[in-house]
Design a protein around this nucleic acid. Sequence first.
DNA 1: GACGGAATTGAAAGCGCTTTGGGTGCACGC
DNA 2: GCGTGCACCCAAAGCGCTTTCAATTCCGTC
Lengths: 342, 342
Amino acid sequence: MNLRELAKHLNLSQTTVSRALNGYPEVKEATRLRVEAAARQFNYTPNMRARGLATGRAMCIGHVMPISKKHEMVNPVFGDFITGASEAYVEAGYDLLLTLVPDAEEAHHYRNMKAKGNVDGIIVHGPLMADRRIALLQEIGLPFVVHGRASDMPADYAWLDMNNRRAFDRATELLIELGHRRIGLVNGLEHMDFAHRRREGFLAALMRHGLEVNPAHLRAGEMTEALGYGAASDMLKQPDPPTAFLSSSMVTAMGIWRALGDRGLRLGRDVSLITHDDDLGYLKNGHDVPTFTATRAPVRDMGRRAAEMLLEMIRDPSCGPLQTLMEAELILGRSTGPAPRE
Amino acid sequence: MNLRELAKHLNLSQTTVSRALNGYPEVKEATRLRVEAAARQFNYTPNMRARGLATGRAMCIGHVMPISKKHEMVNPVFGDFITGASEAYVEAGYDLLLTLVPDAEEAHHYRNMKAKGNVDGIIVHGPLMADRRIALLQEIGLPFVVHGRASDMPADYAWLDMNNRRAFDRATELLIELGHRRIGLVNGLEHMDFAHRRREGFLAALMRHGLEVNPAHLRAGEMTEALGYGAASDMLKQPDPPTAFLSSSMVTAMGIWRALGDRGLRLGRDVSLITHDDDLGYLKNGHDVPTFTATRAPVRDMGRRAAEMLLEMIRDPSCGPLQTLMEAELILGRSTGPAPRE
DNA sequence: GACGGAATTGAAAGCGCTTTGGGTGCACGC
DNA sequence: GCGTGCACCCAAAGCGCTTTCAATTCCGTC
């Protein structure tokens, strides 16, 4: 059933039917009711492609995920983020188009997004420190919001980010207050912006307290369980092993934990551990009391907020690039305790 | 730049330009080259909405994920599955539309998919045992492939599934051969089809070997780390604790492992564990030697295959519903060993 | 040099919707 | 009786593309 048929069936023009369904005021209330009833009866839904052609709006948001060829890994955070975003889209009547781009920097993908005309705006995932996509998108003129930031780029674009720097600074500070002097950092890949900021926060806190940075206590890689296990195992073998760890993700933290187990070290007693926790649905940090002391950021909420920002920017293009910085909570779990006496 | 402008610039009709770009034979080679050069120069990409309107094909596949209100959790497998599917779409020039459906309003969402006309087919995720969506989609007449199956429905639809029953049967068999007599099953929610089949496989193997089923050794829930920890802790407290566990996911297995650690039980020595492993990018099962003995199914490949099936069905609607059953590998890791002497 | 068919190209219709720019009645005031 | 303003409705244009049908050109042939 399309508009023409519906109109014919009602003995009305397409114009009137269209207006009735889209809530225009110049149609008589009785007529509107008649139209709406018929639409319901025949299960009429406007064809979005046709509507899009006519209005110029696609009613669809694109999410662009870079999948690096080298590290073929889907960010586990993605599922939860997108769930949150999806809530906002459903409410606003938008669809979600997902594009996985093999190489973060393939310009033509982004250009095509605009030309193909099937999205009104996009959300950019996984920004690098110097992410050329931002300038590209500004040039293209498609509204966008970055999930995260790109430190090396001028900041006049829309983004939603967690305060990674501060979160890791605070976490480090907490460990230092507990008496830890040798702290290992197991970070994500540091050309990713979020990882870079976390490292900065970590180093800043160390420096503020006059602590040396031991390069052997810094490790970065894809945030897998294996990374945590490997990194912690290596560091613990060294002459001056860390008495505490900072980890960039829950799975990595579990790997670290396993490495402790191998050596008979007890978490929170012999060795302390703070991890970042994205509060993912399938990876809850304990039940009543959190297993890990953690910097927690509700990724799902962030997805929703980012989506709302983008929708707002589309609704009112004059509002300029919106920016949101969210603070992570520092939640106390059972993985931290005073540094052991030497 | 749109087709008309491009045509004008070339002093050609839209017809010819369109044909040149779409590889129709009736256009002179010299002209085609000229057109292609101009298209590249101006970065012309056809507007998909307009093309879709004209051709009736959306060049887009919908993925529908139910998000149950009760268990607000995104299936962690989803990211990898969709990455695989995406590969196939990119090659075929398709886009991917993601819809998260809160399962209450099911029916009208699927009906709208068809009416809105922005997808040519859909992939259905998370099938339940008696999933009404299948009959609905058949009635609607939109090509679809189910990731998994629905045991209680007639099987004349397209699906791609892992042989869950056989995988868990084999895994159980292995444990029995190792001398285990009391085996705990920590499963996913059993109204989900895959979990139901795994349970069946588990029970079949027990029965075949004349082993009693202890209801206290069966547990099902959302496959979180906490589930594994809680279930294992409970079972180990009982008078006749399991000497081996079967787990439906890696994170759950890690929870079980943690519960063992709490009690000073060593994995693979004191207690054995086999888990299902979806081979996710960020949750690798060990490095050289797998940590866990596991039934492994490459979810990403499955995504690709499912997508290819759907594209084939769209290309040739007469080919009927395709079906693919994949076998999981049973890979040996360090989490299994002979049952301890009593 | 005219002719038939193959090779190229174009004009125009149409996909299903929105929206512009008129109508057509009708009530009202003069 | 006539203009005015309002409330309501419609015909038709147009969004950017594909595709049908027809027109034109080109060539080898007789």
